[in-house]
């Protein structure tokens, strides 16, 4: 599958773009310095550390300070301790958003994983048009989220929904379903859109994982019938577990702090029933201008993410060790 010749050509081109040529007037001293592992490591890490330090570490500290202050737009605030956190915790909308975020992350990730796994198994087989199907499966992943979410919003439109039209014509419903105009429906719609968008990433990555599995087991990885299911469970799945966990970690991070999708689809409405932490933090901090309170709400996300990721990584390490 991997064509070595094309790969070689690609690498030369890629390197020219990415890397500066190491020309120097004092090659020898530099060479000696570069032989030192510590010096080389420091040099290699410098660009990443500088950029992340400037654009994450510093803003992060500022963000933490904001969350402890009464800053609002245009007004420098004073230190108020954990007042913003306490206020958020006692806020009914915050609690809804907090619960929603877990609900949304859990179901969306579960769907992405199961459907993505299924799709990966299907795509791992040989069939005509495999290439084009694989490429087209990635489409949802590459359209800018806001734009594809607009397409979905148009499909879920309270008045013009094509899905309602379809169900109506098929005599399955007599009144329109309140896709986005009901909190519960709205949340599920968001989960559907998130799944649609994120599943290809799961499928392609898991497909990559499947391809590392010994080709002799290829046929075993198709899911046909009870026998196939058993083979999947005892042969494929254990080998695929590490990859799966990595993908899930990344997906959970993305989904937990999702913003664009809800912002476009429902804006957090109706009556705040579909807010996630990110959209609520945005509404409080950026739209209303209460920067301190907004920062506090955002910070609530961090420990949760941290714990989830830590658990997953620990699990991964233990498996690697075993």
């Amino acid at each position: 599958m991997n064509k070595p010749i094309a790969g070689g050509a690609g690498s030369a081109a890629g390197l020219e773009v990415v890397l500066p040529h190491p020309r120097t007037t004092q090659p020898q001293r530099l060479t000696r310095l570069l032989e030192n592992e510590r010096a080389l490591a420091a040099l290699l890490l410098a660009p990443a550390v500088v950029i992340l330090g400037t654009f994450i570490a510093y803003p992060f500290i500022m963000g933490v300070w904001l969350s402890l202050s009464s800053t609002s737009v245009g007004n420098a605030g004073e230190f108020v301790g954990v007042k913003n956190f306490a206020k958020a915790w006692n806020d009914s909308i915050f609690r809804t958003a907090f619960g929603n975020t877990f609900f949304y992350t859990f179901w969306a990730t579960l769907f992405k994983l199961t459907l993505g796994m299924w799709l990966a198994l299907l795509l791992n087989r040989h069939f005509r048009g495999k290439r084009i199907v694989r490429a087209s499966m990635l489409l949802p992943f590459i359209v800018p989220t806001v734009l594809s979410t607009f397409a979905w919003r148009w499909m879920f439109d309270p008045t013009f929904s094509v899905l309602n039209w379809l169900l109506f014509r098929a005599d399955l419903i007599t009144t329109k379903l309140p896709f986005l105009s009901d909190g519960t429906y709205g949340m599920w719609c968001a989960i559907v859109v998130n799944t649609w968008r994120g599943m290809p990433f799961f499928a392609i990555t898991l497909l990559a994982g499947l391809q590392t599995i010994n080709p002799d087991l290829h046929e075993a990885s198709s899911l046909d019938g009870a026998n196939g299911w058993k083979r999947f469970w005892y042969v494929t799945w254990p080998l695929l577990k590490p990859v799966t966990i990595v993908v899930v970690v990344f997906s959970v991070i993305q989904t937990f702090s999702d913003f664009q999708l809800i912002y476009v689809l429902t804006g957090g409405g109706p009556a705040n029933s579909t807010h996630l932490l990110a959209t609520y933090a945005y509404q409080v901090g950026v739209a209303t201008g209460l920067l301190g309170e907004g920062a506090a709400i955002s910070l609530f996300m961090l420990p949760v993410l941290f714990v989830v990721v830590w658990l997953q990584l620990r699990y991964l390490r233990r498996m690697e060790g075993a």
Binding site: T54, F55, Y58, P59, G63, I253, A281, S298, L299
Partner: peptide, 19 residues
């Protein structure tokens, strides 16, 4: 470096505007 990936963008948004 991995943890920086966890920091929510909504938190960084205003400080980044300052930078």
């Amino acid at each position: 470096i991995f943890v920086t990936y966890l920091v929510p963008p909504t938190l960084l948004f205003i400080p980044l505007a300052n930078i």
